[in-house]
Nucleic acid binder design. Structure first.
Lengths: 150, 150
DNA sequence: GTCGTTGCAAAGCGTTTGCAACTAT
DNA sequence: ATAGTTGCAAACGCTTTGCAACGAC
């Protein structure tokens, strides 16, 4: 479930912090929830612009900054740039195929050992969710092997 | 040793491919070798501009594209954007502290098990060198713990 | 002389900022 | 009425592109 919190709950969260609930913010939050997973600032701006008022891009950026600041959103770096997602989602790493661009993800729990390896080796506590992991998906790998062997 | 190949060797490599050796390319390659590790396109442009002809930024980008295309360079994604490095360097992952921006690296060999875990779990062959790994370095981690406990 | 390469200027794209108008409260 | 928000327009930083001049070979 991507939506542990509804759009209204998010906006309620903001109100408690002294922020105001505007139709623009409602539209932006709704759009991010509608996208499953993550979405880029540009996409949000485009999609929301189709809606009623025609939200300005600067408003989108200011809202994203605010929502990340209060802990509602976080951003990930993919090959195409930053993408925003709800913090409430289960932490996961993004696997992005460098060849075809397809995407998969893995729950962070399955990579606990990775954290330990890096912590032990460099005394560094990794956050594997912040950058994607690039690589080759299974179908591109197969396609590639075929070329090499024939 | 960052320089298994000298600037001349790189340019010789290009010549074989039918490319020409120009003073601009020589300056760019030299500058990347002078930087230890990686360097951004903007930094290259700035530093090389100080030199003789004042190499144009578009030339820098075109050269980087070419050198990556022929396998001499590769780029990594850090928080601040793409950075270029020599492909000949031993493969390593970049560890970037999200708090202080400090950087460390780990030879890829120390993370072979990570590859296996991800391959087994998702049939995805990761390239851990392409994106940095974000996280918290030891000193920021200590500083952070101190704040929490007092 | 050829053809690859460069500089220049312009444009593209994503993002940020100052400011006056607007509006949720 | 007040203070937070928005739209607009301009600016910004990085990167790309078209084209004529240049220069390595």
């Amino acid at each position: 479930m991507a939506s542990a919190s509804s759009a209204d709950e998010v906006l309620e969260h903001l109100r408690i912090l002294g922020c105001r609930m505007t139709p623009q913010r409602r539209a932006i939050v709704t759009e991010i929830m509608a996208s499953d997973g993550h979405i880029s600032p540009t996409e949000i701006a485009e999609r929301v612009s189709d809606q009623v008022p025609g939200v300005n891009a600067s408003t989108v950026y200011r809202t994203l900054y605010l929502l990340e600041d209060v802990g509602v959103l976080s951003h990930v770096h993919l090959e195409s740039g930053p993408e925003y997602q709800f913090q409430s989602e289960a932490p996961h790493v993004h696997l992005e195929c460098a060849t075809c661009g397809s995407e998969d993800s893995m729950p962070l729990e399955e990579l606990l050992r990775v954290r330990e390896v890096i912590l032990a080796a460099r005394d560094f506590t990794p956050d594997l969710t912040h950058f994607a992991i690039s690589g080759t998906c299974s179908s591109c790998h197969r396609a590639n092997s075929r070329h090499k062997t024939r």
